[in-house]
Amino acid sequence: MTLKKQLEDLRDRAIKNIDSTLTLNDLNQIRVEILGKKGPMTEVLRGMKDLSASERPVVGSYANEIRDVITEKIEKKKIFLEAVKLNQTLKEEKIDVTLSGKKVPQGVRHVLSQTLNEIEDIFLGMGYEIIEGYEVEKDYYNFERMNIPKEHPARDMQDTFYITDDVLLRTHTSPVQARTMEVHDFSRGPLRMISPGKVFRRDTDDATHSHQFNQVEGLVVDKGITMGDLKGTLEVMVKKMFGQERKIRLRPSYFPFTEPSVEVDVSCFKCGGTGCNVCKHTGWIEILGAGMVHPNVLEMSGIDSNEYSGFAFGLGAERVAMLRYGINDIRHFYQNDFRFLEQFKIKE
């Protein structure tokens, strides 16, 4: 048998052995056996000394070639077997993926803030400014500038906490509007504002009354503002808040600071108007009060009511949240029971 043939046999045998090896140990054994000092490869190379000077380099290079093939084959197999072994180990490191993850602290915004933020964003989108004012106000701004002089019967509509005869806890956010109107520069454009914030009424706290609640009032004053503009604006708000299919309905009402005054109902978002317990089987839910700004209110703020007109509206954040989520007790908003607050972490 020629050396070349011997080499080829050796190669074929080695490849066969390597292929069938299952462990790194066996593979190492094969490496030592074939390529080691006492192995067949060494032996073959040793036989080279008997070759002629012209044959020697040919066979030599062929032998190297074969050795490289075998070495590479062993390396590849080694990587493969190592990976198999690692995976074996990893599989043994199996965890129960149903165990709970590490708690990462995460707080929740109060549902009233979420409601107010949402309303604010709707009106920001329509070019309104958000203006905040004093929570403790002068009787003058809270009532008189709202066309409710002292001893006016309408004062009974808003029972009031007084600090002194002239200072009170605001009963609505309207004084912010009065203060804004008197400084607004109409030469720079119309007034479009909303005023969110806390208001106070002398009510005994129970499931439906709260001495403190949050209100958003809106006001637009410009030349040529119509009652149709009020209706359209409220429609936009109601659809954004309660769904595109919602309709609104205006009913006559009375607020001393608006004339005409209306109560605004939204078609029931639970039953769609067919009648259910949320809408007390009327298909409609009372959601806000609104109207065209009373000329007296404009004039008292130094605005010419012959030239300018405006509309105003107001709604309660608590009422909106109660209707939306079916909350049946207004006191929940101020008790701050975590089991209540945390429910509003979901973004709908």
């Binding site: 989108g125 958000i130 410009d222 040529g224 009652m227 205006l250 004339e259 005409p260």
Partner: peptide, 25 residues
């Protein structure tokens, strides 16, 4: 205005948005 509006019917009022100059809010 209120008398006319309510007897005419608030549901028959048009729905419009204030026109004029608008600044971004």
């Amino acid at each position: 205005l209120e008398e006319v509006a309510r007897i005419y019917g608030y549901d028959r009022l048009p729905s419009t948005l204030p026109g004029g100059q608008v600044q971004p809010g």
